[in-house]
Design a protein around this nucleic acid. Structure first.
Lengths: 340, 340
DNA sequence: CTGAAAGCGCTAACAA
DNA sequence: TTGTTAGCGCTTTCAG
């Protein structure tokens, strides 16, 4: 089996304690002894056991990240930011995918807790469900009792450190932009029901319509998953319903991409026949044709900030960082055709 | 601090061993005792310490995955497949990003080794460098000595379990397709030098040209990173060099996306002026305009198979799974203009 | 500067 | 069915 510290000690003719000191370099050790130990380590191919250490120091250098979907670019970007900062701080990142199932999310937190992770980052929106929030708060307490941090990236339903983009605000602004161009019948491809993100963006959409004195026709709002397929389905449903609209605002870019595919297939020109806007500004949104008008969410920065909160020395109170969103006007929106 | 097993034992008026039995459920325990223990666990918010167990059982349920770039869709898809199977088997996945730095890759393997992971999956191509391969082989031995598995996903430079797509074959076929359409001057945006993937795809490209009796003009091959930016730069370099070509084959889709942006900017129509082909068939390749002709690499399946190898009972010899690639013809290629 | 020894929280014989 | 006990590999006082 693999070599242990006492194997190294024996081979180098020193005590366990000395080997430990050489490895951790936190105590003075004579140069010659040090050399001998290092050689022994190399000869034996020794790699120290992180668990034995974790048992004592009660710290692991691991940060758990729970997200909804690993192949969603939104999370890809967040993870990139997280990893960037984790690397700077010599932390390990463990990724768990809840696939938007709140039960799995709770189970994952508990598993991470058993691994004694130093912190847990929860990325993405949350389900607005009382039972879930109760369990989440309970896990948050559990983490604190282990001295671990909980960071919410993208939302802040319970008392915890958090990094939140201004969802309602971005949705308000992009809807306003469509209104300003002259659109009055603006459809909305909303996210899945009971999701905080869905609700916030919907709120911004409604708020803008109201502020402009436009009608908020319920027939123009259809829900779907935050995926390309969700966008395909929602857009198809909308078109098949015979609803009349000149612009469409999708709750995220992936849905907009799906919607665009449907529109193209049906020969509906964007932006000539219908203007299309998304949300998030994922990398591909500038490469599809027409390039997508959207709201930039600083995903990489959200990831970075989350990890910074996760590795920060504990200063007692909860930090909530609010990140601004930004309108990104590209080719997919235009004024409505005359006469509509 | 957090509760331990003996806290639970005390509260439930049983011994440590009994608590352990209840938790692991591998030994008969009287129903009433069991209830009492479970209640105590709940009351105390007890979560067992995975490290203490790992110290004894020498197994962690963690699989380390080392990949190049977390926001590259190629790896996003692979990770999705990996996670899917990991979940089925109750395994944790730890993600590490080497950012294509071989040194970091080795360091990561060693860190994962110290965590006593059950297996390590190395995803993506590798650098063809003797020193690196020597170190890699050494780490492979180290992993084996811990009873851990090493799985190579996408390449197989050392003795290990592996899942490999047929890179050279796919490149051969797509180049042949361009030749068949009538193209003779086909440029290639290659990946970074010394990368196995770069080499294999280049080999397929050259092989096809040769088989067709077409000239392999070195001026038509430029190298770049496997990213959108890499594609932008390589394509720009190619155009600025004044090279003459009617088709372009990018070593991966991300590069093709970058190239497409450059071509569009310069008013070069695809596929009318230049045909464009990519490699991988990442999700966005069908959503860009024109939709990209490419070679499908079964990324999700590669991830799945890799994890299956990682969690398989050790049967001694190395398994190498070869996955076929498939041509995907979309709108970005067409016969060359008459007269060229 | 170095060594001895006492655990960290848990599992797995071995007894009872 | 339950309890006792000896470690797993390492860090960390406390002595020397």
């Amino acid at each position: 089996m693999s070599a242990t510290m006492s194997d190294v000690a024996k081979r180098a003719n020193v005590s366990l304690a000395t080997v430990s000191r050489v490895i951790n370099g936190n105590y003075p050790v004579a140069e010659s002894t040090r050399e001998r130990v290092l050689t022994a380590i190399r000869d034996l191919g020794y790699v120290f056991n992180a668990h034995a250490r974790a048992l004592i120091t009660a710290t692991t250098g691991i940060v758990g990240v729970i997200l909804h979907d690993p192949s969603d670019p939104y999370f890809g970007e967040i993870v990139r930011g997280i990893q960037e900062v984790a690397d700077e701080h010599g932390r390990f990142v463990v990724l768990c995918n809840s696939m938007r199932d709140p039960e799995r999310e709770i189970i994952y937190i508990e598993m991470l807790r058993s691994q004694r992770v130093d912190a847990v980052i929860l990325a993405g929106g949350y389900i607005e469900d009382d039972e879930y929030l109760r369990l989440l708060a309970e896990q948050a307490r559990g983490l604190r009792s282990h001295g671990a941090r909980l960071v919410m990236c993208g939302h802040a339903p319970v008392r915890a450190h958090a990094v939140v983009p201004q969802n309602a605000d971005g949705a308000y602004r992009i809807t306003t932009e469509l209104l300003r161009l002259g659109h009055r019948r603006i459809a909305h491809l909303a996210g899945p029901p009971r999701f905080s993100t869905t609700r916030e963006r919907l709120r911004g959409y409604h708020g803008a319509l109201e502020a402009y004195g436009a009608t908020a026709d319920p027939a123009l709002v259809v829900a779907g998953d935050f995926t390309r397929d969700g966008g395909v389905r929602a857009c198809t449903e909308l078109l098949d319903s015979g609803a009349d609209f000149t612009a469409m605002f999708a709750a995220n870019d992936m849905m907009a991409v799906g919607a665009l595919a449907v529109l193209r297939e049906r020969g509906i020109a964007v932006p000539e026949d219908v203007s299309l806007a998304g949300y998030d500004d994922i990398p591909v949104s500038r490469d599809i044709a027409p390039a997508l008008t959207t709201v930039n969410v600083p995903m990489v920065e959200m990831g970075r900030q989350s990890m910074r909160l996760a590795v920060a020395a504990d200063d007692g109170d909860e930090n909530v960082i609010r990140l601004p969103t930004e309108l990104v006007i590209r080719a997919s929106v235009a004024p409505p055709r005359a006469g509509r």
